[in-house]
């Protein structure tokens, strides 16, 4: 369908990998340049260029932060996103990083990367557990829901929250030294523009740009928060 428009290159972020694999393959077979962002296709070697955030690193960095800042026997709860490969990669890496640290994961539930769902789930966690030392919300939309629930229960002093993805509002609070939000994990959200730049480069120059580019995840703390704060972002 897309290919009939006479394009020279396609940059695609498959929301789900499986259903998009064969249409994208069809496009690639016509000799059109294909760049895949973030979520891989199920058949390897279709795309000319793969640009992705490091989801394992995303979970691992967060996990390491928890290990450093919590003691053995401390309790945490974990919020998962919408059930997808990305979510699985992040959570697997996070639990792997926690292995052997003696930190208890009380429960994991899906907040579906959604504020309202996470608010509800956190309310229920707060009813259920008397002692929570930290929350890995894994995403800033979920972190906002979680924070509102903690505030409602008036247990702000008891636990801190680590989100993810570097939402403007959250980064601002980290920069300002909010004790409830000590850190965040993100890979630069400008992935797509990076991918488009690289694609354009691949088309107009002879520079070899094909292959896999994994954009590393980074830990954001009050010290470096300023450089992750983008005033104009709608997120």
């Amino acid at each position: 369908m897309v290919a009939t428009r006479g394009i020279d290159a396609l940059v695609v972020l498959p929301f789900e990998s499986e259903p998009l694999t064969s249409p994208v393959q069809a496009v690639a077979e016509q000799g059109i340049w294909v760049t895949v962002v973030d979520r891989g296709l199920t058949v390897e070697g279709i795309e000319d260029l793969y640009v992705a955030g490091d989801n394992s690193g995303f979970g691992q960095l967060a996990g390491e932060y928890f290990v450093e800042n919590l003691d053995e026997g401390d309790n945490i709860v974990v919020f998962r996103g919408i059930p997808t490969t990305i979510d699985n990669e992040r959570v697997d890496a996070f639990t792997a990083a926690l292995d052997g640290s003696g930190i208890n994961i009380l429960d994991m539930q899906h907040g579906n990367w959604n504020r309202d769902d996470s608010f509800t789930v956190m309310q229920d966690f707060l009813s259920r557990f008397d002692d929570i030392d930290a929350v890995w919300a894994s995403d800033d939309d979920m972190a906002i829901g979680v924070l509102a629930a903690i505030e409602q229960a008036d247990r702000q002093d008891e636990m801190w929250v680590v989100g993810g993805a570097g939402m403007k509002e959250i980064i601002g609070r980290i920069r300002d030294g909010d004790p409830q939000l000590p850190a965040n994990v993100s890979y630069p959200p400008a992935q797509i523009s990076t991918a488009i730049e690289l694609t354009a480069l691949g088309l107009v120059s002879d520079t070899p740009v094909s292959g896999r580019f994994i954009i590393g995840s980074q830990l954001i703390t009050p010290e470096n928060a300023e450089q992750f704060y983008f005033e104009d972002s709608p997120f």
Binding site: R80, P83, D107, M108, Q109, H110, T120, V121, D124, F125, S127, R128
Partner: peptide, 14 residues
């Protein structure tokens, strides 16, 4: 139903 499933985690949240 949602509340009980959150509180008990007896079934996979899926």
């Amino acid at each position: 139903i949602g509340n009980i499933l959150n509180l008990a985690s007896i079934v996979s949240p899926y």
